[in-house]
Design a protein around this nucleic acid. Sequence first.
DNA 1: GTCAAACCTTACCGAAAGGTACAATTAATT
DNA 2: AATTAATTGTACCTTTCGGTAAGGTTTGAC
Lengths: 200, 200
Amino acid sequence: MSSGRKKLFDENTALNAAMDVFWQKGYVGASLTDLTKRMGINKPSMYSAFGNKEALFVKATQCYIDTKMKPLISLLFEEKVTLKQRLKNHMMSIVAMQCDTSDAKGCYLALCQSELVSGDIPEQAEQLLKEADAMPIQVYTELFNSDAEAIKLGLNNNAQANALSLYTILKGTASMARSGIDKSELEYSIDSILVGIGVQ
Amino acid sequence: MSSGRKKLFDENTALNAAMDVFWQKGYVGASLTDLTKRMGINKPSMYSAFGNKEALFVKATQCYIDTKMKPLISLLFEEKVTLKQRLKNHMMSIVAMQCDTSDAKGCYLALCQSELVSGDIPEQAEQLLKEADAMPIQVYTELFNSDAEAIKLGLNNNAQANALSLYTILKGTASMARSGIDKSELEYSIDSILVGIGVQ
DNA sequence: GTCAAACCTTACCGAAAGGTACAATTAATT
DNA sequence: AATTAATTGTACCTTTCGGTAAGGTTTGAC
C-alpha cells in the first residue's frame, strides 16, 4: 500500500500544541509562525497534515470540546450527588479552568467568540464555535427538564430562562478570569446565582 | 499665529466614526483602511491629527467612556428612585446597548478585552482598557458602601462580593448579546441575580 | 540495490498590514 | 498679490500574514 518516509512528528501531539496556541491567542492572533513553532514542525508539514489554518483550527477546537468541555458537562449528570452539589462542582470546575493561568491561557471560547463579531473567522470554524458556544444552554435546559430533583424544585417551569442564567454566569466568570480575578472571589457569585434561580 | 490651509474635516466627527469602527471590529480588526474610510479622511490626515493608530484608539476609547459609560453609571445615583429600580435601570440600559445591533456592533470593552489576552494591544491602550473595565466594580462597591438603602439591606457587608456579582452579570450579558440573544431573554437573569444578592 | 512514495527544508509568492516622504493644494497673513 | 504654514493626495516603504513550488532526504516495497 503506502511506502515512503515516516512522519517524524506525532499528529496528536502537534494538534494539542496547536490547541494551546489558539487557546492563548485566538484564531487571528495565532500566526502560522506561532503555531508551527510550538508544534515543532514546518509550515509544509502542517499543511500536508491538516490542510490549512482553518482546518487546523477546526480540529483543535474539536479536540478542545472532546477533552475539555465534555468532562465538565458530565459532572452535571453524576449519580448519587445532589443537584446543588452537581451544579456547584460543574461551575467551580469551569471557574478553576478559566482562572488557570499556568500557561497564560484565557478562555478558549470566550476569546474566539469575540472574533466571531469582527468577522475574522472563516465559515466552517464559525459554525463549530457557535455550536460549542450554544452547547451549555442546551445541556442546562435538558437537565432542568429531566432531572427529578430539578423538577421537584420547579426549575423545569423556567428551564430555558434558568439555563440562560447559569450560562450568563459562566460567561461572566470567563470574562472576569481574563481580567485576572482570583478563583475564590468568584465562588460567592456562583452561590448567589444558584440562590437566585432557586437551587437550595 | 497660525496660517495655512484649514482642516476640511471635523476632528470630533472623525473621532466618533473611529469609535464606531473600533466598536465593531476591535483594535486589531480595525485596519487603517477601515478607519480612514469611515472617518472620511486619508491616512496622512489621520496621522497628523491623532498621531498613530494607538493614539487614535485611546482617544476613541476615552470618547466611549465619557459619552457611553458615564451616563449609564449616573443612573445608579439618581435621586428619588429606589435602589432596586436604579439597579434595574442601570442593568437594563446596559443590556439594551449590548443588544443594539443597529450597526452590527458588539460590546466595545468585551471585544477589545479579549485582545488584551492575546497581547495584541499596545501598552497605553491596554492601560486605559483595564481602567475602564475595572470601573464598574469600583462604582458598585462605592454604591453598596455609601447608599443609605443599600446599607439598610446589609449590602455593605459584602460590598465587594456583591459588586463582583453584578459585574459578572454585566459581562455575561455582554457575551450573550454578542451571540445574538434577545434583550427580553436577559431580563430574567438580571432579576435572578438581584434576588440572589438580596436586593428586594 | 533500485525505485517510488512520502516526508522535510528552503526559499519564495501576492496581499495586506502600519506607517511615511514628498509634492501639490489651499487659505490666512503681510 | 506674494508669502507662508498647514492640510491634502499619491505613491511608496518595511514587515508580516497565509500559503506554496521545488528539490533534497529518508524510508518502505520489490
